[in-house]
Design a protein around this nucleic acid. Sequence first.
DNA 1: TGTACATCAGTGAACGCGCGTTCACTGATGTAC
DNA 2: TGTACATCAGTGAACGCGCGTTCACTGATGTAC
Lengths: 204, 204
Amino acid sequence: MKPSTRYHHGDLRAAIIRSAMAALERDGPEGISLRGLAETVNVSRSAPYSHFRNKREVMAAIAEIGFDRLIDEMQRVDGDAPDARLCFLGVGAGYIRFALENPGLFKLMFSADLVSLRSVGDLDQRSARAYAVFRQSLDAFLLEIGRAAPASPTLQALAWSSVHGLAMLLLEDRLPGPPERPMDLAHAVTGMFVELIESSAQRA
Amino acid sequence: MKPSTRYHHGDLRAAIIRSAMAALERDGPEGISLRGLAETVNVSRSAPYSHFRNKREVMAAIAEIGFDRLIDEMQRVDGDAPDARLCFLGVGAGYIRFALENPGLFKLMFSADLVSLRSVGDLDQRSARAYAVFRQSLDAFLLEIGRAAPASPTLQALAWSSVHGLAMLLLEDRLPGPPERPMDLAHAVTGMFVELIESSAQRA
DNA sequence: TGTACATCAGTGAACGCGCGTTCACTGATGTAC
DNA sequence: TGTACATCAGTGAACGCGCGTTCACTGATGTAC
């Protein structure tokens, strides 16, 4: 049985996406080429065009999966306690862990040049869902500590920016004195954010 | 007088950098090519190699200038009061303003793929200086409100991440419900960060 | 159960493009005498 | 002041590369009769 000799691949679409994911982590978002993907999957250069209209569609498909995985990673709470505080900490840490473990994918997802959300409905929707997960866990935490429940747009932006910024800086190695255990820093930073919110809530 | 016909350009190095800056904001970091720069400056394709060893050196030179400008922008404090709190707010807002006004340059400066800091001594040094400006204004602010003066690595990372993350999300248009006046959000977010620190300081 | 046929995933060659970089060269400049 | 010459910024052609995409095609598949 030589599956690589078959005329019809079987599930080329899935194979291309799988290969694209691998290339993404190997060479980064810029390193992906349809020709390269086709070669990896042992298929002619034009074969991918039976499943995708163009390169942008492939990139969008990958980014879509990326947002699903990001959601999974955020919801994989560390502890098991249904404590809103721990839950929010888990979401924040999950966000950063996802970025560190899938740097290429993360960069792709958050690069306007590479994937323009607005043009692809499904992608836009999934990115919104990822954001909703983050926002809801923030709101639940606020509620738990007795503070004005739906976070203001400003607080939302501050919380999201903190996690996203730290992920970005760690990824691009732009943090002065880069930590040898990045996730330790991630936990420390999210922990400090939570403490700041808590102490400010006690005043209100 | 036809300066474009001269055999020797005069100051090709500066002209290339200037042209690169323009291309950066027009097409983004990926859109820059040495050939394109040469063409813009009306010079042969190989001419740039009299001033730069390769493309990486051009990118590094631009990024270097970028960090200098970032420092200027951070130090262009809004008010005139030598108030450490206002100063820190100005630094944070300056950081985000710089990113919004020079998106291509900002992305280049913080992209590990495009410019590897570690390999270029001068660049590394200037990026460190930019970070120092930020850290010092944070420390001054902490001092002013009577809190443990040199910020812990965790607090440094949180502060830097907040500003950087917000800049990045605004730049890549990844903030849900993108604000029509981004700098208003920038001021609100930095303002909230400062308030959180102040209220937590009152407890200690 | 057997055969004609429509479908469409995959082929292979080609189009046209832009890129970084090298190399032998040329011509302007300014310095030493 | 005038001239020989070293220097080196800039030329132009070429090398070799990888890319996205198109197009007429072929061969496997499965359905209708």
